[in-house]
Design a protein around this nucleic acid. Sequence first.
RNA 1: GCGGGUGUAGCUCAGUUGGUUAGAGCGCCUGGUUGUGGUUCAGGAGGUCGUGGGUUCAAUUCCCAUCACUCGCCCCA
Length: 436
Amino acid sequence: MSLSLQPIKGARDFFPEDMRVREYIFSVWKESCELFGYQAYDTPILEPTDLYLQKGIQEIVNEQTYSFKDRGDRSLTLRTEMTPSVSRLVAARRQEFAYPLRLYSIPQCWRYERMQRGRGREFYQLNVDLFGDESINAEIEMLELADTIMKKFKANRKMYQFKLNSRKLVDTFLNEVMGLDETQSTTIRRLIDHMHKMATPAFVGQVESVLSPSQREDGMLDKLLEFLRAKTIEELPKSLSLHPSVIGLTDLLNKLEELKITNAVFDPTLIRGFDYYTDIAFEVFDTNPENNRSMFGGGRYDGLVGMFGVEPVPTIGFGMGDITLLNFLTVHELLPKTYSPVEAYLMTTDDSITDGAMQVARELREMGVKLAVDTSNKKIVKKIKNAIKHDIRYVIIIGQQELDQEQYTLKNLITGVEEKHSIQRIVSLVEDHRNT
RNA sequence: GCGGGUGUAGCUCAGUUGGUUAGAGCGCCUGGUUGUGGUUCAGGAGGUCGUGGGUUCAAUUCCCAUCACUCGCCCCA
């Protein structure tokens, strides 16, 4: 039996051309984060399984993680997300760090789950977190950064939309207005999270089955439906209008308006799966009908750092996966044509001049030109074709004539222009095309 | 965990209402005379038709099983 040519299910091999796309995405992420003052960090890809069993994180460890015992019989899990790890990082230096603390990372994460569009078992996810700022400025910074990233990917506002909600608002409504107990509100929250995937009668039926007879008689179902139908803050029940979460949301939406982030809306049905969110949660949706789905999101989770036994730190953050982003960029045709990081392909006309050509190659490299050489005895045609296959922009052809004159043939494979130049001149021409 | 789809050359797929040497396009290799591309022309290599079993004189084509891939549901950043 021969070995499989495919990587394990749900994981990807990155060929050079895939790697270039990945590098492009990573570089936009990195640039954007650093532009906002965020610093990179990393943590091990393997974590003690306990980290994901903490309450508040509530990962379904058995079904959605790659967990196993190591040789020391310790239960380990491939990280499924970065939030618990970064929380530990901060807790470890809770006292020493200077706040607000801005951190980002691009970890590879693993989740053992069924395959479907936009979701694999292995993925990279930009994680951005801001620690130690409990003001609304933190929310604004998050959204502005997320928006900047989308802009850098050349997306326009028609292509995506921010949806905002407050976990605190939802909980206040469920507990205080509707009078639900803990169990009821957890179940209802789950239902709300899925209401867009089920028919209204089904949703209504399930909600009713959770409500007690007296709650049903008091018309709580209708109150809930009315709450969920609110398209703006103003449509929320009057009794809530002075609640801090509503004031916060209003503030936030107004600021976004001022910043010309016009594609942000309030959505009381936005929940997000993780239970650790404590207030504002947001999600970014692709507006394209073919790919109309949540692309990424985040929110405020003020409690996680505190789980490591230190004083809690107010935190807000978001995560952005590479697979959904790639879908987005593909559907909207935003992916740029990429070229090899190799800048030039140097070739000889026959092997008698290999030594001389290699000397030229060394000089070019010393001056910083990223150079691949081909001194094989293949025909020139073949060598040029190979350069094209590698998506390399320049070809440098060296024969006896070139060596004698110390003028080397430089051909731009994109424009077709071919001229003879000195080494010095070749270097500067190549440099002109860097970062374009 | 549930349901649908697909598995034929490197890739995308056609095809055989069961019957001798299984097809196309693209890609790949060679050549069109001696230092040049993405055009064109002529040749060529490459497939146990996912795997195992059954029915049959005969199966890649029918039946069963199995595996793999894929999409959706469940779940979820």
